[in-house]
Design a protein around this nucleic acid. Structure first.
Lengths: 334, 334
DNA sequence: TTGAAAGCGGTACCAT
DNA sequence: ATGGTACCGCTTTCAA
């Protein structure tokens, strides 16, 4: 029993100083209603004076509750996540929870390892864009409170950024602008977000009678966007909807590099609205709310932890934000 | 004693199943060298079979070590931090540590609260760009292993991105390009990073005989950068060095908005190199290594935790990365 | 309203 | 090489 850090003040010390039993001292914090007011006050005063604070481990060992939660993201460097993390963080702090952050590097195996390491140390999980197979998530969720962000699994609490409606708007806008051939720059096909957006583009295009070519990009990145411009033009499309803003941003750069003008020569629409108006031209995008999804997931999780049965599925409406990267069609090849 | 989650397998269960004492079962994991090889193997196999895993709280309570660390940042949404977080995260996982993330929202008070909440739950802290008064940091550091990033306090372990040399290069480049009047777009004056960069600009300018005006911007943001362009031009400067890339990016937008061309009409240099070549024009910047500082801080912290006495001060050299936002001077006013 | 004492799940010292 | 057992610091019956 390696004694802990420095001269930590324990509950026993506090109780002795206050001339009460440990039970009473403990209750002064956990069930003050059971203790005489003046006693409570005396103990609390003494606690501050002596610098006492409860040992979370000891408490957790005895209660089984940790007041910690875990947030797992596939890539903290992807601009979609920082605002989400920020909200979870802020909300957790308000509720008196601390948060473990795990970065799975987009790999299911790592995600699993992170979850296992954290499992016993938290009261619940928020899994953002989880890459784990559904069975594993189900198994986890029935054992410990778990909320998914942008992953759809029946029976598991989840918060979904419903980009579909916004993507429809995007397709309709392009159609209205005379774009009869467009492209969808796809994200990781294993993600719910891509599946949903892809379906929305395809569905919307069919309804509006526009032709769409899907270009697979793999890991969504600025470079991938920049480099796909050649094949993009080759499809004969006059406009593109990208899986996310990062890709769209790259596309913007790609066009600029070859001397083509967006939106005059080609229209581009992104998703997520995480770059705000910081691109040139300002990116027209489907705004869903990275931050909002974080906030929603957190409150759902807190509800779950407190034994409530929150809405199992929360859909956050997304809508198209018109900025400057879309204009009427005009054939760029001559 | 609210029993913990579901039917957790405890060490006692495992020991019973293996027909050994708890001591032996425990040692199979912590000191396998003390136990007969076949016994160790049998216990470990059984552990997997039964789904046993040690309870971190119980272990922490008894050993005083948590295998957790805390990372506190002022704003996870500031692009300087995600790569840093990523590195800390990755390194921690490799070493078998989990990481708590705290976002102080640039406020010392919140930072203090976060630290207090996490204090007992971690083996050490990494404080990035801490806003806390030096005494508080010193007090913390002498009680628990602590490493600072971009904060200079004698006696406390720290990792510093030494932008000075890179900033000098920047000033020299501008001078060589004929810019005789430049501006420094300052960051939060209470941060070490700003103090250091400001001094480097001022010092470098004096040495190169160029005039420099400092423009105070407060919280560094894209908007602040975009909006300061007017006053920037009013100073008569023909080039600017910004506290960070985010501000520089805003400045780029500001110029574009009023129809001025960077770098033809005005040269801009950033700091941190977190936007890579994603701006238009690609931003010339002082590259310090957000990621590198995270990695360095983590290994320093692990050293500290293991009782080593690592170098107290690690300076990461920064250098100028030439991209496209700088060109020879040319008076923009006529 | 308060106290005594039995855990919570491990670790590590002291024996054997 | 293994076992017995006293903690680690707190919560929570059960009694008084």
């Amino acid at each position: 029993m390696t004694s802990k850090r420095k001269g930590r003040v324990t509950l026993a010390d506090l109780a002795r100083a206050a001339g009460v039993s440990e039970s009473t001292a403990s209750r002064a914090f956990t069930r003050p209603d059971l203790i005489r007011d003046d006693t409570v006050e005396r103990i609390k005063r003494l606690a501050i004076e002596l610098g006492y604070s409860v040992d979370p481990h000891a408490r957790a060992l005895s209660t089984g509750r940790t007041r910690n939660i875990a947030l797992i993201v596939p890539d903290i460097a992807n601009p979609f996540f920082p605002p989400l993390v920020r909200e979870v963080e802020a909300g957790a702090e308000r509720a008196g929870y601390a948060v473990f952050l795990g970065d799975s590097d987009e790999r299911a195996a790592r995600e699993k390892v992170l979850i296992d390491r954290l499992d016993m140390q938290v009261d619940g999980f928020v899994l953002a864009s989880s890459r784990l197979p559904a069975e594993q998530i189900l198994e986890l969720a029935e054992r410990v409170p778990t909320v998914l962000i942008n992953r759809e699994i029946e029976g598991v609490q989840r918060v979904l950024v419903d980009a579909a409606s916004g993507v429809r708007e995007a397709v309709d806008l392009l159609a209205a602008m005379g774009h009869s051939t467009i492209a969808y720059l796809a994200g990781p096909p294993e993600t719910w977000a891509d599946q949903q957006r892809r379906a929305a583009v395809l569905g919307g295009a069919a309804a509006a009678a526009v032709t769409v070519t899907v270009i697979e990009l793999g890991r969504p990145s600025y470079e991938a966007g920049r480099e796909c411009v050649g094949s993009l033009i080759a499809t004969g499309a006059t406009a593109a909807i990208a899986f996310d803003d990062v890709i769209a941003h790259g596309v913007l750069a790609g066009f600029s590099l070859i001397g083509l003008n967006v939106p005059a020569d080609f229209s581009v629409i992104g998703c997520d609205d995480v770059l705000a108006a910081t691109t040139l031209p300002a990116l027209t995008t489907v705004s869903g709310g990275s931050a909002a999804s974080g906030a929603a997931a957190l409150s759902t999780l807190l509800g779950l932890i407190d034994g409530a049965a929150p809405v199992e599925r929360t859909a956050l409406a997304a809508h198209l934000v018109h900025r400057a990267s879309v204009a009427p069609a005009r054939n760029i090849r001559r």
